[in-house]
Design a protein around this nucleic acid. Structure first.
Lengths: 180, 180
DNA sequence: CGATGCATGTAAGCTGTTACATGATTGC
DNA sequence: GCAATCATGTAACAGCTTACATGCATCG
Protein backbone atom coordinates (compact mmCIF):
# COMPACT_ATOMS: atom_id res chain seq x y z
CA UNK A 1 0.00 0.00 0.00
CA UNK A 2 1.57 3.23 -1.17
CA UNK A 3 2.14 6.10 1.24
CA UNK A 4 -0.35 8.94 1.25
CA UNK A 5 0.84 12.22 -0.17
CA UNK A 6 0.64 15.39 1.89
CA UNK A 7 -2.65 16.56 0.43
CA UNK A 8 -4.12 13.07 0.54
CA UNK A 9 -3.33 12.80 4.23
CA UNK A 10 -4.85 16.18 4.97
CA UNK A 11 -8.04 15.46 3.04
CA UNK A 12 -8.39 12.07 4.68
CA UNK A 13 -7.88 13.72 8.06
CA UNK A 14 -10.58 16.28 7.36
CA UNK A 15 -13.03 13.57 6.38
CA UNK A 16 -12.12 11.63 9.51
CA UNK A 17 -12.92 14.55 11.80
CA UNK A 18 -16.34 15.22 10.40
CA UNK A 19 -18.03 11.86 10.64
CA UNK A 20 -19.39 12.52 7.20
CA UNK A 21 -18.81 15.33 4.76
CA UNK A 22 -18.92 16.31 1.11
CA UNK A 23 -16.00 16.98 -1.20
CA UNK A 24 -17.14 20.56 -1.29
CA UNK A 25 -16.75 20.87 2.47
CA UNK A 26 -13.24 19.46 2.27
CA UNK A 27 -12.36 22.17 -0.19
CA UNK A 28 -13.91 24.88 1.97
CA UNK A 29 -11.94 23.76 4.98
CA UNK A 30 -8.69 23.81 3.02
CA UNK A 31 -9.47 27.25 1.68
CA UNK A 32 -10.38 28.71 5.08
CA UNK A 33 -7.14 27.67 6.70
CA UNK A 34 -4.65 30.54 6.67
CA UNK A 35 -1.78 28.20 7.46
CA UNK A 36 -2.30 26.18 4.34
CA UNK A 37 -0.75 27.01 1.04
CA UNK A 38 -3.03 24.58 -0.74
CA UNK A 39 -5.37 26.18 -3.14
CA UNK A 40 -7.40 23.02 -3.07
CA UNK A 41 -8.71 23.59 -6.54
CA UNK A 42 -11.50 21.37 -7.78
CA UNK A 43 -9.04 19.93 -10.25
CA UNK A 44 -6.92 18.48 -7.50
CA UNK A 45 -9.46 17.62 -4.81
CA UNK A 46 -11.98 15.68 -6.87
CA UNK A 47 -9.49 13.39 -8.59
CA UNK A 48 -7.75 12.93 -5.25
CA UNK A 49 -10.94 11.83 -3.53
CA UNK A 50 -11.69 9.47 -6.39
CA UNK A 51 -8.26 7.97 -5.78
CA UNK A 52 -8.97 7.51 -2.08
CA UNK A 53 -12.27 5.87 -2.93
CA UNK A 54 -10.63 3.49 -5.39
CA UNK A 55 -8.16 2.49 -2.71
CA UNK A 56 -11.11 1.97 -0.38
CA UNK A 57 -9.88 4.45 2.17
CA UNK A 58 -13.19 6.29 1.98
CA UNK A 59 -16.71 5.36 0.93
CA UNK A 60 -19.39 7.60 -0.52
CA UNK A 61 -23.10 7.52 0.20
CA UNK A 62 -25.51 9.45 -1.96
CA UNK A 63 -28.04 11.54 -0.07
CA UNK A 64 -31.37 10.43 -1.44
CA UNK A 65 -33.17 13.68 -0.78
CA UNK A 66 -30.70 15.60 -2.92
CA UNK A 67 -31.01 15.63 -6.65
CA UNK A 68 -27.68 17.31 -7.43
CA UNK A 69 -25.73 14.19 -6.66
CA UNK A 70 -24.34 15.23 -3.30
CA UNK A 71 -22.10 12.50 -1.97
CA UNK A 72 -21.44 12.09 1.73
CA UNK A 73 -17.92 10.80 2.26
CA UNK A 74 -16.85 8.67 5.19
CA UNK A 75 -13.54 7.18 6.19
CA UNK A 76 -13.29 3.38 6.24
CA UNK A 77 -11.44 1.28 8.78
CA UNK A 78 -8.70 0.79 6.22
CA UNK A 79 -8.66 4.56 5.69
CA UNK A 80 -8.29 5.22 9.41
CA UNK A 81 -5.29 2.89 9.50
CA UNK A 82 -3.75 4.65 6.51
CA UNK A 83 -4.31 8.01 8.22
CA UNK A 84 -2.55 6.85 11.38
CA UNK A 85 0.31 5.54 9.29
CA UNK A 86 0.54 8.85 7.43
CA UNK A 87 0.70 10.77 10.70
CA UNK A 88 3.55 8.57 11.91
CA UNK A 89 5.61 9.43 8.83
CA UNK A 90 5.75 12.94 10.28
CA UNK A 91 8.59 11.71 12.49
CA UNK A 92 10.69 10.72 9.47
CA UNK A 93 13.69 12.81 8.53
CA UNK A 94 12.11 14.38 5.49
CA UNK A 95 8.98 15.98 6.94
CA UNK A 96 11.02 17.38 9.80
CA UNK A 97 13.56 19.07 7.56
CA UNK A 98 11.70 19.73 4.37
CA UNK A 99 10.12 23.04 5.10
CA UNK A 100 10.66 25.45 2.28
CA UNK A 101 10.20 29.15 2.78
CA UNK A 102 10.08 31.41 -0.29
CA UNK A 103 11.20 34.36 1.79
CA UNK A 104 14.22 32.47 3.05
CA UNK A 105 15.11 31.19 -0.42
CA UNK A 106 15.29 34.74 -1.67
CA UNK A 107 17.46 35.87 1.21
CA UNK A 108 20.37 33.88 -0.21
CA UNK A 109 20.38 36.04 -3.31
CA UNK A 110 19.75 39.46 -1.84
CA UNK A 111 23.15 40.59 -2.99
CA UNK A 112 21.69 40.84 -6.49
CA UNK A 113 19.63 43.81 -5.39
CA UNK A 114 21.15 47.25 -5.01
CA UNK A 115 21.61 48.51 -1.47
CA UNK A 116 18.55 50.75 -1.49
CA UNK A 117 16.36 48.13 -3.15
CA UNK A 118 17.51 45.61 -0.56
CA UNK A 119 16.32 47.72 2.33
CA UNK A 120 13.09 48.58 0.58
CA UNK A 121 12.49 44.91 -0.08
CA UNK A 122 13.11 43.91 3.52
CA UNK A 123 10.79 46.61 4.81
CA UNK A 124 8.06 45.42 2.47
CA UNK A 125 8.46 41.81 3.60
CA UNK A 126 8.46 42.81 7.25
CA UNK A 127 5.25 44.73 6.82
CA UNK A 128 3.57 41.78 5.10
CA UNK A 129 4.81 39.44 7.74
CA UNK A 130 3.36 41.63 10.47
CA UNK A 131 -0.02 41.61 8.74
CA UNK A 132 0.14 37.88 8.36
CA UNK A 133 1.08 37.42 11.99
CA UNK A 134 -1.91 39.46 13.08
CA UNK A 135 -4.14 37.31 10.91
CA UNK A 136 -2.65 34.14 12.33
CA UNK A 137 -3.18 35.37 15.88
CA UNK A 138 -6.82 36.18 15.23
CA UNK A 139 -7.24 32.70 13.90
CA UNK A 140 -5.51 31.27 16.94
CA UNK A 141 -7.79 33.16 19.32
CA UNK A 142 -10.84 31.72 17.58
CA UNK A 143 -9.42 28.22 17.85
CA UNK A 144 -8.58 28.59 21.50
CA UNK A 145 -12.17 29.30 22.40
CA UNK A 146 -13.96 26.63 20.46
CA UNK A 147 -13.09 23.38 18.75
CA UNK A 148 -10.65 20.69 19.69
CA UNK A 149 -7.22 21.23 21.13
CA UNK A 150 -5.27 19.82 18.19
CA UNK A 151 -6.72 22.51 15.98
CA UNK A 152 -5.41 24.92 18.54
CA UNK A 153 -2.00 23.28 18.67
CA UNK A 154 -1.74 23.43 14.90
CA UNK A 155 -2.59 27.11 14.79
CA UNK A 156 -0.18 27.71 17.63
CA UNK A 157 2.59 26.22 15.52
CA UNK A 158 1.76 28.53 12.65
CA UNK A 159 1.85 31.53 14.97
CA UNK A 160 5.12 30.61 16.62
CA UNK A 161 6.84 30.00 13.30
CA UNK A 162 5.56 33.29 11.92
CA UNK A 163 6.85 35.08 14.99
CA UNK A 164 10.25 33.49 14.47
CA UNK A 165 10.32 34.52 10.83
CA UNK A 166 9.44 38.08 11.71
CA UNK A 167 12.10 38.23 14.41
CA UNK A 168 14.61 36.91 11.89
CA UNK A 169 13.73 39.55 9.30
CA UNK A 170 14.00 42.35 11.83
CA UNK A 171 17.36 41.11 12.94
CA UNK A 172 18.65 40.99 9.37
CA UNK A 173 17.27 44.46 8.78
CA UNK A 174 19.05 45.75 11.86
CA UNK A 175 22.37 44.20 10.84
CA UNK A 176 22.13 45.76 7.41
CA UNK A 177 21.73 49.16 9.03
CA UNK A 178 24.75 48.81 11.23
CA UNK A 179 27.31 47.97 8.57
CA UNK A 180 25.77 50.17 5.92
CA UNK B 1 7.39 37.64 -19.40
CA UNK B 2 6.15 34.93 -17.10
CA UNK B 3 7.17 34.88 -13.46
CA UNK B 4 9.94 32.56 -12.41
CA UNK B 5 8.91 29.58 -10.34
CA UNK B 6 10.54 28.92 -6.98
CA UNK B 7 13.09 26.45 -8.30
CA UNK B 8 13.79 28.56 -11.36
CA UNK B 9 14.55 31.57 -9.19
CA UNK B 10 16.85 29.56 -6.95
CA UNK B 11 18.77 28.03 -9.86
CA UNK B 12 19.12 31.39 -11.53
CA UNK B 13 20.37 32.84 -8.25
CA UNK B 14 22.96 30.12 -7.89
CA UNK B 15 24.24 30.74 -11.41
CA UNK B 16 24.36 34.47 -10.69
CA UNK B 17 26.55 34.01 -7.63
CA UNK B 18 29.14 31.91 -9.34
CA UNK B 19 30.11 33.97 -12.32
CA UNK B 20 30.07 30.78 -14.32
CA UNK B 21 29.06 27.26 -13.41
CA UNK B 22 27.84 23.96 -14.78
CA UNK B 23 24.42 22.43 -14.39
CA UNK B 24 26.05 19.75 -12.32
CA UNK B 25 27.31 22.33 -9.85
CA UNK B 26 23.84 23.82 -9.54
CA UNK B 27 22.56 20.40 -8.59
CA UNK B 28 25.34 19.88 -6.05
CA UNK B 29 24.63 23.16 -4.39
CA UNK B 30 20.94 22.34 -4.08
CA UNK B 31 21.72 18.93 -2.66
CA UNK B 32 24.19 20.26 -0.09
CA UNK B 33 21.78 22.73 1.38
CA UNK B 34 20.13 21.29 4.49
CA UNK B 35 17.44 23.94 4.42
CA UNK B 36 16.25 22.92 1.01
CA UNK B 37 13.68 20.26 0.42
CA UNK B 38 14.52 20.16 -3.27
CA UNK B 39 15.99 16.95 -4.41
CA UNK B 40 17.14 18.72 -7.52
CA UNK B 41 16.95 15.58 -9.57
CA UNK B 42 18.51 15.63 -13.00
CA UNK B 43 15.01 15.27 -14.39
CA UNK B 44 13.99 18.63 -13.02
CA UNK B 45 17.20 20.66 -13.22
CA UNK B 46 18.22 19.97 -16.81
CA UNK B 47 14.86 20.74 -18.41
CA UNK B 48 14.61 23.80 -16.16
CA UNK B 49 17.95 25.16 -17.31
CA UNK B 50 16.98 24.50 -20.91
CA UNK B 51 13.90 26.60 -20.24
CA UNK B 52 15.97 29.44 -18.82
CA UNK B 53 18.26 29.28 -21.83
CA UNK B 54 15.33 29.40 -24.24
CA UNK B 55 14.06 32.48 -22.47
CA UNK B 56 17.55 33.95 -22.75
CA UNK B 57 17.97 34.36 -19.03
CA UNK B 58 21.20 32.38 -19.18
CA UNK B 59 23.73 31.55 -21.87
CA UNK B 60 25.95 28.49 -22.17
CA UNK B 61 29.53 28.36 -23.33
CA UNK B 62 31.18 25.06 -24.14
CA UNK B 63 34.58 24.53 -22.58
CA UNK B 64 36.84 23.68 -25.50
CA UNK B 65 39.28 21.60 -23.48
CA UNK B 66 36.55 19.26 -22.36
CA UNK B 67 35.31 16.49 -24.58
CA UNK B 68 32.34 15.44 -22.48
CA UNK B 69 30.32 18.48 -23.46
CA UNK B 70 30.63 20.44 -20.23
CA UNK B 71 28.70 23.66 -20.56
CA UNK B 72 29.53 26.72 -18.49
CA UNK B 73 26.38 28.64 -17.69
CA UNK B 74 26.22 32.38 -17.17
CA UNK B 75 23.41 34.74 -16.33
CA UNK B 76 22.49 37.36 -18.94
CA UNK B 77 21.49 40.96 -18.30
CA UNK B 78 17.90 39.94 -18.96
CA UNK B 79 18.37 37.09 -16.51
CA UNK B 80 19.69 39.40 -13.81
CA UNK B 81 16.61 41.59 -14.22
CA UNK B 82 14.34 38.55 -13.98
CA UNK B 83 16.17 37.45 -10.83
CA UNK B 84 15.67 40.83 -9.18
CA UNK B 85 12.02 40.75 -10.12
CA UNK B 86 11.68 37.24 -8.68
CA UNK B 87 13.25 38.36 -5.41
CA UNK B 88 10.79 41.23 -5.16
CA UNK B 89 7.84 38.85 -5.41
CA UNK B 90 8.96 37.59 -2.01
CA UNK B 91 7.11 40.54 -0.52
CA UNK B 92 3.80 39.41 -2.04
CA UNK B 93 1.14 37.91 0.16
CA UNK B 94 1.61 34.35 -1.04
CA UNK B 95 5.30 33.76 -0.36
CA UNK B 96 4.92 35.30 3.08
CA UNK B 97 2.05 33.05 4.10
CA UNK B 98 2.52 29.92 2.07
CA UNK B 99 4.88 27.97 4.19
CA UNK B 100 3.69 24.42 4.61
CA UNK B 101 5.02 22.23 7.36
CA UNK B 102 4.31 18.50 7.22
CA UNK B 103 4.72 18.26 10.98
CA UNK B 104 2.18 21.00 11.54
CA UNK B 105 -0.28 19.50 9.05
CA UNK B 106 -0.27 16.28 11.00
CA UNK B 107 -0.82 18.03 14.30
CA UNK B 108 -4.37 18.87 13.27
CA UNK B 109 -5.25 15.20 13.11
CA UNK B 110 -3.42 13.86 16.13
CA UNK B 111 -6.71 12.93 17.72
CA UNK B 112 -6.80 9.95 15.36
CA UNK B 113 -3.94 8.38 17.27
CA UNK B 114 -4.51 6.68 20.60
CA UNK B 115 -3.22 8.49 23.65
CA UNK B 116 -0.08 6.40 24.01
CA UNK B 117 0.72 6.53 20.28
CA UNK B 118 0.26 10.28 20.39
CA UNK B 119 2.91 10.75 23.04
CA UNK B 120 5.25 8.29 21.35
CA UNK B 121 4.81 10.15 18.09
CA UNK B 122 5.53 13.53 19.63
CA UNK B 123 8.64 12.23 21.35
CA UNK B 124 9.89 10.82 18.06
CA UNK B 125 9.31 14.10 16.25
CA UNK B 126 11.00 16.09 19.01
CA UNK B 127 14.05 13.88 18.84
CA UNK B 128 14.28 14.27 15.08
CA UNK B 129 13.82 17.99 15.35
CA UNK B 130 16.64 18.22 17.86
CA UNK B 131 18.95 16.34 15.51
CA UNK B 132 17.94 18.58 12.66
CA UNK B 133 18.49 21.70 14.74
CA UNK B 134 21.99 20.56 15.60
CA UNK B 135 22.71 19.98 11.92
CA UNK B 136 21.36 23.40 11.04
CA UNK B 137 23.51 25.06 13.67
CA UNK B 138 26.64 23.36 12.42
CA UNK B 139 25.82 24.62 8.98
CA UNK B 140 25.24 28.11 10.35
CA UNK B 141 28.60 28.15 12.10
CA UNK B 142 30.34 27.25 8.84
CA UNK B 143 28.52 30.04 7.06
CA UNK B 144 29.33 32.60 9.71
CA UNK B 145 33.03 32.10 9.23
CA UNK B 146 33.34 32.12 5.49
CA UNK B 147 31.28 33.23 2.52
CA UNK B 148 28.93 36.14 2.11
CA UNK B 149 26.57 37.47 4.72
CA UNK B 150 23.36 36.64 2.85
CA UNK B 151 24.26 32.99 2.98
CA UNK B 152 24.61 33.48 6.69
CA UNK B 153 21.30 35.33 6.97
CA UNK B 154 19.55 32.54 5.09
CA UNK B 155 20.96 29.86 7.33
CA UNK B 156 20.09 31.98 10.33
CA UNK B 157 16.47 31.97 9.22
CA UNK B 158 16.48 28.19 8.96
CA UNK B 159 17.91 27.91 12.45
CA UNK B 160 15.49 30.34 14.03
CA UNK B 161 12.49 28.66 12.46
CA UNK B 162 13.69 25.23 13.53
CA UNK B 163 14.12 26.52 17.07
CA UNK B 164 10.57 27.84 17.01
CA UNK B 165 9.22 24.52 15.76
CA UNK B 166 11.03 22.64 18.48
CA UNK B 167 9.79 25.00 21.18
CA UNK B 168 6.29 24.53 19.83
CA UNK B 169 6.50 20.73 19.94
CA UNK B 170 7.83 20.75 23.48
CA UNK B 171 5.04 23.02 24.58
CA UNK B 172 2.42 20.76 23.03
CA UNK B 173 4.06 17.78 24.63
CA UNK B 174 3.97 19.48 28.03
CA UNK B 175 0.31 20.40 27.70
CA UNK B 176 -0.58 16.84 26.82
CA UNK B 177 1.09 15.66 30.00
CA UNK B 178 -0.78 18.07 32.24
CA UNK B 179 -4.30 17.17 31.22
CA UNK B 180 -3.50 13.48 30.82
C1' DC C 1 43.36 0.06 -14.98
C1' DG C 2 39.70 0.63 -11.87
C1' DA C 3 36.89 3.40 -8.76
C1' DT C 4 34.97 7.65 -7.82
C1' DG C 5 33.33 11.76 -9.16
C1' DC C 6 32.04 14.99 -12.96
C1' DA C 7 28.80 15.77 -16.50
C1' DT C 8 24.64 15.33 -19.32
C1' DG C 9 20.39 13.92 -20.40
C1' DT C 10 15.61 11.07 -21.48
C1' DA C 11 11.00 8.67 -20.55
C1' DA C 12 7.01 7.39 -18.01
C1' DG C 13 4.07 8.59 -14.67
C1' DC C 14 1.84 11.23 -11.07
C1' DT C 15 0.12 15.35 -9.06
C1' DG C 16 -1.28 19.84 -9.19
C1' DT C 17 -2.91 24.24 -11.57
C1' DT C 18 -5.90 27.14 -14.29
C1' DA C 19 -9.80 27.66 -16.64
C1' DC C 20 -13.94 26.00 -18.07
C1' DA C 21 -18.57 24.06 -17.43
C1' DT C 22 -22.92 22.73 -15.33
C1' DG C 23 -26.74 22.44 -12.37
C1' DA C 24 -29.44 22.25 -7.58
C1' DT C 25 -30.76 24.58 -3.27
C1' DT C 26 -31.78 28.18 -0.15
C1' DG C 27 -32.82 32.63 1.55
C1' DC C 28 -34.49 37.10 0.62
C1' DG D 1 -37.69 35.19 -9.23
C1' DC D 2 -32.91 36.06 -8.54
C1' DA D 3 -28.54 35.90 -6.25
C1' DA D 4 -25.46 33.52 -3.49
C1' DT D 5 -23.92 29.37 -2.13
C1' DC D 6 -23.67 24.40 -2.50
C1' DA D 7 -22.07 20.79 -5.31
C1' DT D 8 -19.59 18.21 -8.88
C1' DG D 9 -16.67 17.62 -12.27
C1' DT D 10 -13.39 17.83 -16.99
C1' DA D 11 -9.44 19.25 -20.15
C1' DA D 12 -5.12 21.09 -21.21
C1' DC D 13 -1.00 21.99 -19.48
C1' DA D 14 3.07 22.50 -16.44
C1' DG D 15 6.27 20.67 -13.30
C1' DC D 16 8.50 17.33 -10.51
C1' DT D 17 9.96 12.47 -9.34
C1' DT D 18 11.93 8.08 -10.13
C1' DA D 19 14.48 5.33 -12.76
C1' DC D 20 17.20 4.67 -16.53
C1' DA D 21 21.17 5.58 -19.52
C1' DT D 22 25.66 7.16 -21.09
C1' DG D 23 30.35 8.55 -21.13
C1' DC D 24 34.68 11.55 -19.73
C1' DA D 25 38.26 12.86 -16.19
C1' DT D 26 41.17 12.19 -12.47
C1' DC D 27 43.59 10.05 -8.86
C1' DG D 28 45.76 6.29 -6.79
Amino acid sequence: MRQLSELEGICLGIIARHKSCTAYRVRQELKDSPSSHWQASAGSVYPLLTRLETRQLIVAKAARTDRRGTRQLQITRKGAAALREWIRTGADADPVSSISDPVRSRMFFLQSLGRAARVRYLDAVIERMQDYLAETKTHLARKRAASDRYDYFGSLGATMVTEARLKWLKRVRAELNIST
